[in-house]
Design a protein around this nucleic acid. Structure first.
Lengths: 218, 218
DNA sequence: ATGTTGAATTATGAATACAATTTGAAATGA
DNA sequence: TCATTTCAAATTGTATTCATAATTCAACAT
């Protein structure tokens, strides 16, 4: 048990941030939709104050935009934003990979390898949702293995902004095959603990993902 | 005049975030100090609501920590945090350099070069504050030249967290000389628009800075 | 019929009020 | 004297209120 943390129960606005973030990433709160303050207050059973605090935080992260005297809207997923965000995510993931090679336990690497095999199976079965989930798990596990909370924090912010793009367009089958290929290399570099190579592979992987999105959305 | 923007006056809490961030970076609000809510409200002439909204946002950025029922404290600058944050800043600056090489106007590069010459003069004169200022200007200008708002946003968050370290320890003269040397190379790579090289130089520059800080603080 | 005006309604931004928790010092006892 | 307990004051987290800006919609003019 952890006795160093002084037993701090999460504040209302933090829980709201978490739940709203999920709702936005999942698409329950659609991009561009205005956030109905009063309604949410009622359904969540809180007053406006903590909800509004949560909205300020999410606005700072770019998940919502605040229009003065007109309330909050879920931010739109634009091509411009994706083009800006992806290169940043790419270098962050690259760094995560590099650090993970240096710091991950053998056990962690084994677990990531296992998840890879799951993912490959989902690909063979053509099961996109399961593939996506496994893919996310892998990236999250890698981030955890990097043991850098600052990195993880910014990664979380950015991926929640971008994750929603998957709802906009399915990538082509050919890109899917390519991505799987890339993941074979990624796993190999991780298992070899080749940090520099894994970094470059991950950065390229993300940049390729952006290119594919661009194509799918044009 | 710009008529496309729908005439939006900045909200109170946003202004507060900006001002509090400055106060924290500048050291007016010292690391570890608790944020006196009532006092700040009076001196800033606002009520608690917008101030508290600002504090939530800054807590999300890591500039303050919220202790439940015990209010906000300015976060401490720990070695652990610096070790986590610097590598992230390093890759972000690297990306900024790479993008700047591709996107900066000749004019922008010329201005950055000019600011470099200022900075070199301040070094020769042994004027640390002026050197720091010029140094910051250079990094900010580079970031602006990268034309990536997402990158800039995260860079701002991170550097405000880390900037305060300069108040903790003066780097050694030998490291100072080294940093100046590195900046000569950085400028050269930028003027040659050699993106890959500038990226690597900047990343290394930041990582060296961390190493120097580690030495100075031990 | 279509477009415009303006009062009523609603929603928002900020201030204030209230309840719960923490703090700190006086009072008590060893 | 020193530790412990108790209780008031202060501070915080959340709810509510208030003033103002935006929206809606019916009445009117074109």
């Amino acid at each position: 048990m952890n006795l160093s943390t002084p037993l701090t129960r999460p504040s209302l606005h933090e829980e709201l941030v978490t739940r709203l973030r999920e709702a936005i990433v999942q698409g329950t709160l659609a991009p561009g939709a205005k956030v109905p303050e009063r309604e949410l207050c009622e359904s969540l059973g809180v007053s406006r104050t903590p909800l509004r605090e949560a909205l300020k935080v999410m606005a700072n992260e770019g998940l919502v935009v605040l229009e003065s005297n007109r309330g909050a809207r879920v931010s739109n997923v634009t091509m411009e934003e994706l083009e800006a965000a992806f290169p940043v995510i790419a270098v962050l993931e690259g760094l995560a990979g590099e650090l993970a090679c240096a710091r991950a336990s053998d056990d962690e690497i084994a677990r990531i390898a296992l998840r890879h095999r799951d993912m490959f199976r989902h690909y063979e079965a053509g099961n996109r949702p399961a593939y996506f989930q496994a893919n996310r798990d892998i990236h999250d596990a890698l981030m955890a293995a990097a043991r850098n909370p600052v990195l993880a924090q910014h990664y979380t912010m950015l991926s929640s902004r971008v994750e929603r793009a998957r709802l906009l367009a399915n990538v082509s089958d050919s890109r899917w095959a390519e991505a799987v290929e890339e993941h074979h290399d990624i796993l190999a570099a991780l298992e070899a603990r080749n940090g520099a190579r894994l970094r470059d592979l991950l950065t390229a992987h993300l940049n390729n993902k952006l290119a594919a999105l661009k194509k799918a959305l044009s």
